[in-house]
Design a protein around this nucleic acid. Structure first.
Length: 434
DNA sequence: AAGTCGTGGGT
DNA sequence: TACCCAAGACT
């Protein structure tokens, strides 16, 4: 736990507003800062003892940093950021649209991948209006491979709402931003704070990690008590007028220095960090309950007929909604994968098919599953293979196509199927069909 | 509030 | 290999 020395009458740091969340969180203190005493940026023992001040009324362990600590924290952090800030493409101009796209794109996504997708997206959809005018299929194709595709559907809805109601511009009011589809507490804070430089914080996994270490928060960071404390701490540490740099700096520090394996030797906050003082930064943040990963065998068949390949479009709900795919499904208990293909084709298309070569086993994961995707080459069986072939009776799809191999890149596939297509490009057994 | 929703990099 | 988990939101 942090030092319990409390200074009930010391200046309490300014508490910048944090976005309202579904969980109501009472800000312990909203009073403006008193005259902040000048304090050396270096962490003196005095500064360390002055780290926190308890809320005066209850005396509960809901502690906020003193103004002096907050200033030392912000100064060290912002100085570091000025030197180590990466030249990311949305860090030029901070146009709200660019910030919005980057923030949504980077949700649960690694920076390097996000940058590539961002640059392509901005070329294809340079403004809100172009997103609103695009078809969902176009947007989905641009998002293909990034995952969490409801993000792009919500982006579409939000863009259309902005064109209709806000003249195609993002509002600068955190509440109004938060009301848009796909924008939660984090993204609303990020847009308001980073694009508009409003005095608002944003809490992502980086911020959680940094603050849980600096203040040695010993309960699961995503659970309510710790989450509320982190929101309050971030708000108290935020220097007025510096939200753009402060928010980015906190996240940048988490991404570059205060990583899962912390690099405390090069951390500008090492002198202020309670978990480091205790020698346990690697024990923070305390993780929540983790979901078990379920292994799953799935089979899929690439059905060829002449030089055409059968694909179908998934329903509008559930995983990979609206994606194209090769039919297939879960391998049941005591079922061989090639038998799965025959069964699934019968159920999903009413095709009788014959399974030929096994093409690949592709391993990938989605959400809580770890999938082994067994891939087979298939043909229509017996007299089903007329010309043109008999139409399918779709049971798990909204559309179907018989397409040439060269046309597959125009359609949007789940990553596992996309990997299969990539492999087929060089698979000699598949040469007759491409 | 606990599950769902993807994917690939890091270790 | 196996596991963790990332600039989260929604239901």
């Amino acid at each position: 736990m942090p030092a319990r020395d409390t200074f009930p009458h010391s200046a309490c740091a300014s508490a910048a507003p944090s976005l309202p969340d579904t969980q109501t969180d009472t800000q312990p203190n909203q009073t403006p800062p008193d005259a902040a005493p000048a304090l050396p940026a270096s962490p003196s023992p005095t500064a360390r003892r002055a780290r926190t001040a308890a809320t005066a009324d209850t005396g509960q362990p809901r502690e906020l940093p003193t103004a002096a600590f907050a200033e030392a924290f912000a100064t060290a952090l912002l100085d570091w950021f000025a030197v180590h800030k990466r030249p990311l493409p949305w860090r030029f101009g901070y146009e709200p649209y660019s910030v919005w796209i980057s923030e949504v794109m980077l949700q649960q996504t690694q920076m390097d991948r996000g940058v590539d997708y961002f640059l392509r997206w901005m070329t294809q959809f340079p403004d809100v209006a172009s997103v609103a005018a695009a078809s969902e299929d176009e947007l989905l194709k641009a998002w293909e491979g990034l995952g969490y595709y409801s993000r792009v559907r919500n982006l579409h809805k939000a863009a259309k709402a902005l064109v209709e109601r806000h003249d195609g511009e993002l509002p600068d009011d955190p509440e109004a931003i938060r009301a848009l589809p796909g924008i939660g507490p984090y993204t609303a804070g990020a847009i308001a704070g980073i694009a508009f430089n409003r005095d608002v914080t944003c809490i992502d996994a980086n911020v959680e990690r940094v603050l849980s270490r600096v203040f040695d928060i010993d309960t699961p960071v995503r659970a309510r008590p710790a989450a509320a404390r982190i929101r309050a701490l971030a708000a108290a540490l935020l220097p007025a007028g510096r939200a753009r740099d402060f928010n980015q700096a906190l996240m940048e520090l988490g991404a570059l220095v205060c990583r899962k394996k912390p690099q405390c030797a090069s951390c500008p906050l090492s002198g202020l960090c309670e978990s480091l003082r205790l020698g346990i930064p690697h024990e923070r943040p305390v993780p929540g309950r983790k979901q078990p990963i379920v292994p799953l065998d799935v089979a899929t068949g690439v059905l060829v007929h002449g030089n055409r390949i059968f694909i179908q479009k998934r329903p509008d709900e559930g995983v990979w909604a609206g994606f194209w795919e090769f039919p297939g499904g879960r391998v049941e208990r005591n079922e061989a994968p090639d038998a799965t293909i025959v069964r699934e084709y019968a159920e999903e298309t009413a095709f009788r098919i014959a399974v030929r070569d096994k093409l690949a086993v592709i391993r990938h994961g989605y959400t809580t599953y770890r999938v082994a995707l067994h891939c087979y080459l298939c043909e229509l069986d017996g007299n089903m293979g007329g010309e043109p072939p008999v139409p399918p009776i779709l049971d798990a799809a909204t559309e179907y196509r018989w397409v040439e191999f060269a046309d597959l890149p125009r359609f949007t596939f789940p990553a596992g199927h996309r990997k299969l297509i990539d492999q087929l490009t060089t698979d000699l057994r598949f040469a007759p069909y491409r």
